[in-house]
């Protein structure tokens, strides 16, 4: 049996969690909402993160469009995802919510635009 003390990162409250792993059983204490429960369980078994960054845009009113991974990707894939983001260029217009890269870096997650960049 192993107990880990974590800070939940699901919202700015930052609840202090006590997560106990006993074989298959994971118990989470200290969370104030179901998201904290989910975070505690995932963090000790298969931690995930949302990666946010931006991609270059050609022909747009802005040189960059901000992006995020949906859903979250495995934590250990962060830098693989960043390599894929850096080597990608989108053409304007880009719309918020538009899928720019499917299954980015083999994670099963998509890279989605988080801002609209109109054509110049």
């Amino acid at each position: 049996m192993e107990t880990r003390e974590l800070t939940c990162i699901r919202c700015p409250i930052g609840c202090s969690l006590k997560v106990t792993v006993d074989g298959e059983n994971v118990t989470v204490l200290g969370n104030h909402c179901p998201r904290g429960m989910e975070y505690g369980k995932k963090e000790v078994t298969a931690p995930t993160r949302t990666v946010t960054s931006s991609v270059r845009v050609t022909g747009g009113v802005l040189p960059l469009a901000s992006v995020k991974t949906v859903p979250e990707i495995p934590k250990e894939k962060i830098f693989d995802v960043m390599r894929a983001i850096r080597s990608f260029t989108a053409a304007a217009p880009v719309r918020t919510g538009e899928k720019l890269i499917e299954n980015i870096a083999g994670t099963g997650s998509d890279l989605v635009a988080t801002r609209t960049v109109e054509q110049k």
Binding site: T50, T52, S53, T96, T114
Partner: peptide, 21 residues
């Protein structure tokens, strides 16, 4: 451009530009 905005207002986690939009 990071996420963590909007959990109170929209009950979902947004990035800054999405929240503004």
């Amino acid at each position: 451009i990071h996420n963590g905005f909007g959990l109170h207002t929209f009950k979902e986690e947004l990035t800054g530009p999405e929240y503004a939009e």
